[in-house]
Write a protein that binds this DNA or RNA. Structure first.
Length: 480
RNA sequence: GGCCCUAUGGUCAAGUGGUCUAAGACAUCGCCCUUUCACGGCGGUAACCCGAGUUCGAACCUCGGUAGGGUCACCA
C-alpha cells in the first residue's frame, strides 16, 4: 500500500505555525514512507475567505521547502483538489448513504432544534426524524419541504480506533449525535466533505490536529456505513502560546511570513517547529529537511501540547546563520545591511563579517549598525569603566592620543592600526586597553558595539574615524 | 455539564519496572577568553501534579483526585 497523506488548509490569510507544522508532519510522513503528499484547498467557507490566500499557501509551502506531489496545480488523477470545485459531488454520496442505511432525511426546522438545548446551551438532536416511514419521507420530499440529511449513528455500539500517536480511542455511540451531513442548501458540512474527499482521494493516513481526536469515531462510522476502508489516523497535539492559550492567528504573532520578514531563515523556522511536539531518537536538534525526513518517526511525537518558545527559535536561527559560509551569510544579510547604511559608502562585506556571529536574526542588523548613521552628542558616562581604569580624564587623554597617532597613519589596515595605537599608547604612557576602550566609544558614541576599536575604525574609514575622534575629544574637553 | 485527551525543571524534551541520588537543548546565573559586545570553552541553580494500590522495587503499570486542553453548530 502506498502511503498518501494530505494537507488541507483553508485559505483564510497567513499560514500560522500550528497549521504549517501539521502540513510538515504530513509531508515528512509521506516522504519517509515513499508516499504521496497531497495539497487540497478547503475553501468552502466563503465568509472567511481572504483574497490572495491561496497564493499565500503556495508561497509558504515553497519557501518552507514542503513540496506537494498532487494539488490544484499538479493533477494526480484524484482531482479536483479545490473543495469548491467538488461541491456537486457530495449530495449524491449523501443520498447513497441514505440508501445504505447510514443516513436519513430530517425535516426539523431551526425553531424546533433551538428548543432542544440543555441547561448548558448544548443541544443534542433527539433523532426525531430518524424513523420516518419511507412513505412520509417521499411525500414530504415531493412536497418540496426543506430537509437535511443526517448521519444515522448505530445504537448500542462503541466506535473505536487505534490512533497512531494516542493509541486506542473509543467513544460510545450514545455519545455521538446524529449530525448533519448535507445542509438544507444541498451543500455538505465540513465533516462530511472531509470524509468523502479523503476517501475519494485515496488518503491512507489522515494527519491533523487533536481537535478531531474525539470526533474521529463518528467519521469512522461513516466509512463503515459506506463500506469504505478506514484510513489510519495521526492526531497532533496543539502548539500553545502559553499554558492555557492555543497559538492563534488572531493575534498575528505566530505566522510563518512574519517570522521570515523579521529576519528568520525558513529552514530554521521549519526546523524549530518540527521539534515542537516531536523528538528524533538521537535527540538531534539542528536538522535539514532531508535529515528530518529520514529520522521522522511516530514514536517521537508527544501526546501533550507544547508552548512555542521564540527564544529557542532565535537561538536555532543563530546557529543556522553561524553555520553559513561568509558568502552565504553575505547574501542573506545584504538587504539588511543596505537598510542600515542608508546608501552610505561602507564596506558591506566587512560589516557582514562583523554581524555573522553577533546576530540571531537578521533584523538585528540595522540596530547593531545604527552607530554608522547616528553620531552626535552622547552620554559621557560611558567612558567610566572601573575594570578598565578609565574615567573621563583618562578617556580624553586616550582619545587625543589615538587621534594624533592615527592622523599620521597612511596604511588603514587592521595590523597597521593596531600597531599604531599600541605604540601611541606606549609613547603616551598608557595601557593599550585603555586607549582601545576609549577609542571605541569615541568612534561610535555607543557603550556596546559590534566589534572592537580597530574593527570600528576600519569600518568607518580614516576620514570619518578622525572626524569622530576629534568630535569626541571636544565633548570630553568640555566635560572636564 | 457529557464525552475524549494530556500531565518530567521557566520552555522544548529523553525516559516504556531496577543502570534515575532523572539525559540533552533553550533561557538564566557564574567563571575563563576578550579593548566592548559577541563567538567559543567550563561550571552552577532548577523537574517526575497529588493520593492510594500492584510489585522485592514505580517517573514508568492500575485506580481515584486535581489541573489543563479538545469537542459537543445547517462553521470550516
Amino acid at each position: 500500500m502506498t502511503v498518501r497523506t494530505r494537507f488541507a488548509p483553508s485559505p483564510t490569510g497567513f499560514m500560522h505555525i500550528g497549521n504549517l507544522r501539521t502540513g510538515l508532519y504530513a509531508y515528512l510522513f509521506a516522504r519517509r514512507n515513499k508516499g504521496t503528499f497531497i495539497l487540497r484547498i478547503e475553501d468552502t467557507d466563503q465568509e472567511r475567505k481572504v483574497e490572495g490566500a491561496v497564493e499565500m499557501v503556495y508561497r509558504t509551502l515553497k519557501t518552507a521547502g514542503i513540496q506537494h506531489d498532487e494539488g490544484p496545480d499538479k493533477d494526480g488523477g484524484y482531482g479536483p483538489y479545490v473543495q469548491t470545485e467538488r461541491m456537486g459531488l457530495y449530495k449524491e454520496y449523501a443520498e447513497k448513504l441514505v440508501e445504505l442505511g447510514g443516513a436519513y432525511y430530517c425535516f426539523c426546522d431551526k425553531a424546533r432544534l433551538e428548543g432542544l438545548k440543555d441547561e448548558n446551551g448544548v443541544h443534542t438532536y433527539d433523532k426525531h426524524c430518524r424513523n420516518l416511514s419511507d412513505e412520509e419521507v417521499k411525500r414530504r420530499l415531493a412536497a418540496g419541504e426543506p430537509y437535511v440529511i443526517r448521519q444515522k449513528v448505530p445504537e448500542g455500539v462503541v466506535s473505536e480506533y487505534e490512533d497512531m500517536v494516542f493509541g486506542k480511542i473509543s467513544v460510545d455511540s450514545a455519545d455521538i449525535e446524529d449530525g448533519i451531513l448535507l445542509k438544507s442548501d444541498g451543500l455538505p458540512t465540513y465533516n462530511f466533505a472531509n470524509v468523502v474527499d479523503d476517501h475519494l482521494m485515496g488518503i491512507t493516513h489522515v494527519i491533523r490536529g487533536t481537535e478531531y481526536l474525539s470526533s474521529t469515531p463518528k467519521y469512522n462510522l461513516i466509512y463503515d456505513a459506506f463500506g469504505w476502508e478506514r484510513p489510519c489516523y495521526m492526531h497532533l497535539p496543539p502548539i500553545m502560546k502559553d499554558a492555557t492559550r492555543k497559538l492563534s492567528k488572531r493575534f498575528g504573532d505566530a505566522n510563518f511570513e512574519d517570522f521570515i520578514s523579521k529576519g528568520y531563515l525558513p529552514e530554521a523556522v521549519v526546523n524549530y517547529i518540527a521539534l515542537l511536539g516531536w523528538c528524533p531518537k538521537d535527540n538531534r536538534e539542528k536538522m535539514t529537511m532531508e535529515e528530518m525526513t529520514e529520522a521522522f518517526d511516530i514514536d517521537g511525537i508527544s501526546h501533550s501540547s507544547s508552548i512555542f518558545d521564540e527564544a529557542k527559535m532565535r537561538w536555532l536561527n543563530g546557529e543556522y546563520l553561524k553555520a553559513m559560509s561568509q558568502d552565504e551569510f553575505y547574501a542573506v544579510a545584504l538587504p539588511w545591511i543596505e537598510k542600515a547604511i542608508e546608501g552610505k559608502d561602507y564596506d558591506k562585506r566587512e560589516l557582514a563579517l562583523l554581524m555573522q556571529t553577533r546576530v540571531d536574526i537578521l533584523s538585528e542588523i540595522p540596530e547593531k549598525l545604527a552607530f554608522l548613521n547616528n553620531f552626535g552628542e552622547y552620554d559621557l558616562n560611558m567612558y567610566v569603566h572601573q575594570k578598565m581604569k578609565v574615567d573621563k580624564a583618562v578617556a580624553l587623554k586616550a582619545v587625543k592620543l589615538a587621534y594624533d597617532s592615527l592622523a599620521a597613519l597612511d596604511d588603514w589596515s587592521e595590523e597597521a592600526i593596531k600597531e599604531c595605537v599600541k605604540q601611541g599608547a606606549e609613547a603616551g604612557g598608557m595601557k593599550s586597553g585603555q586607549v582601545m576602550f576609549s577609542m571605541r566609544v569615541a568612534l561610535t558614541g555607543e557603550a556596546v558595539t559590534p566589534g572592537g576599536a580597530i574593527e570600528m575604525a576600519i569600518v568607518l574609514g580614516k576620514e570619518e574615524s578622525l572626524r569622530r575622534l576629534a568630535f569626541s575629544a571636544q565633548l570630553l574637553e568640555k566635560a572636564q
